[in-house]
Simulated scan of single mutants.
Amino acid sequence: MLRGIHHVAVICDDYAVSKAFYVETLGLRVLGEHYREERQSWKLDLALPDGGQVELFSFPDAPARPSWPEARGLRHLAFAVDDIDAACARLTARGVVLEPVRVDPYTGQRFVFFADPDGLPLELYEVAAAG
């Protein structure tokens, strides 16, 4: 049956801006980059350290994604981090605006939300060390 999440696809407005954000700001590694002439679309495959991937697409005239108020469907993309304070400091130094760090009332873990260049909600979720 299911083994895990293989990838998450994100459609962006400004490909160059989003590519820089996901590669330079978030530190994802480029696996492949292709321009698909028939769709007038870039497809950028990015690697997460755990083997998962983010696919970044550009499509001409893609409609805006409703975020506020929150719409039905996929809500946000969450990335696991070991040290939320260090991750927040790195993002803040790169000009990313973060919401205040909160604590999950059920797990006790800390998390923080921010947005990608198109306003897609992203989350950092601090995962407790095993042991």
Rank of each mutant, 00 (worst) to 15 (best):
D61P: 07
D14C: 00
V54E: 01
T92Q: 15
V97P: 05
R29T: 15
L124K: 04
V23Q: 07
F21G: 00
S58Y: 05
V112G: 00
G73H: 05
A129E: 14
R29A: 15
A64N: 15
D85S: 12
A130T: 11
A71P: 03
P121D: 15
S58D: 02
L120Q: 13
Q53N: 06
Y106F: 12
G51F: 09
G27D: 12
G131T: 12
V103Q: 06
W42N: 07
A80Q: 05
A64V: 11
L77Y: 06
P63D: 06
L28I: 03
A20W: 07
K19D: 00
L77I: 13
G51K: 11
H7E: 02
H76M: 13
L124T: 08
H6C: 14
A87M: 07
E55W: 02
G73D: 04
G51I: 08
G131R: 12
R90Q: 12
T92E: 14
E33F: 01
V127W: 05
L26M: 13
P121A: 11
G32R: 13
G32S: 13
F111P: 06
E55R: 02
R39E: 15
D61Y: 09
D104E: 12
T107C: 08
G131C: 11
F113K: 01
Q109K: 15
P49N: 10
A115Q: 14
P60E: 04
T107K: 08
F113P: 00
E38Y: 06
H6W: 12
A20H: 12
F79W: 08
G51H: 13
V17A: 14
A78R: 08
P121N: 15
A9W: 01
G119N: 05
D118I: 03
L91G: 03
L46Y: 06
P121K: 13
V81Y: 03
P49K: 12
F111T: 06
V127P: 01
P66R: 05
Q109R: 14
S41E: 11
Q53L: 07
V17W: 08
A93R: 12
P69H: 05
G27E: 09
G27R: 08
E24R: 10
A128H: 03
A47W: 06
E24A: 08
A115M: 07
L2E: 11
E70V: 14
D85I: 10
H7P: 01
L124G: 02
L120R: 12
A93E: 09
L26C: 10
R29H: 15
G119A: 06
